[in-house]
């Protein structure tokens, strides 16, 4: 079960809230201070992507953010409910990013930023939605 769960209407103005909550939880969980900017940026990118997908497919359901404290790591899962055109199951470090419908390529750029920032990231997409899971190691304070 997620330690903290956040659901927000798929609107751009709420992404900042998710960033703030993500970074605050990461700090509390014991993620190194040097990595907090990365957490903030990565959760923002994942939520921006989810909001964009919901808007593109006119999905009114909320975007879901799960913040999970484990013994030695802190994870953030961002869940969208948009249908993805190309089902894919991508592990970080493998070649290629998914082809998307985003005409400006910002979605792909967001994934590129996440892949560049976070060592431990999984992207899963299916016909009924997608999930990005990102994890960071924590110190003994958790």
């Amino acid at each position: 079960m997620a330690t903290v769960e956040l659901r927000f209407t798929p609107l751009p103005e709420h992404v900042r809230t998710a960033r703030l909550v993500g970074a605050a939880m990461a700090r509390r969980a014991g993620v190194a201070d040097a990595a907090l900017d990365e957490v903030r940026l990565a959760v923002g990118e994942a939520c921006t992507r989810a909001v964009g997908l919901h808007q593109l497919h006119e999905v009114a359901e909320p975007v879901q953010v799960r913040l999970i404290e484990d013994e030695k790591q802190f994870s953030i899962e961002v869940v969208d409910e948009a249908p993805h055109a190309v089902p894919a199951d991508i592990e970080a470090g493998t070649a290629g990013l998914p082809v998307t419908e985003d005409p400006e390529g910002e979605d792909e750029m967001g994934l590129a930023v996440i892949s560049g920032l976070v060592d431990d990231v999984q992207v899963k997409t299916g016909e009924s939605g997608g999930l990005i899971r990102m994890s960071w190691p924590t110190t003994t304070l958790a």
């Binding site: 923002g44 921006t48 750029m109 967001g110 590129a112």
Partner: peptide, 8 residues
């Protein structure tokens, strides 16, 4: 703060 949308 700058994200990929800003880069775009």
């Amino acid at each position: 703060f700058l994200d990929s949308t800003g880069l775009g």
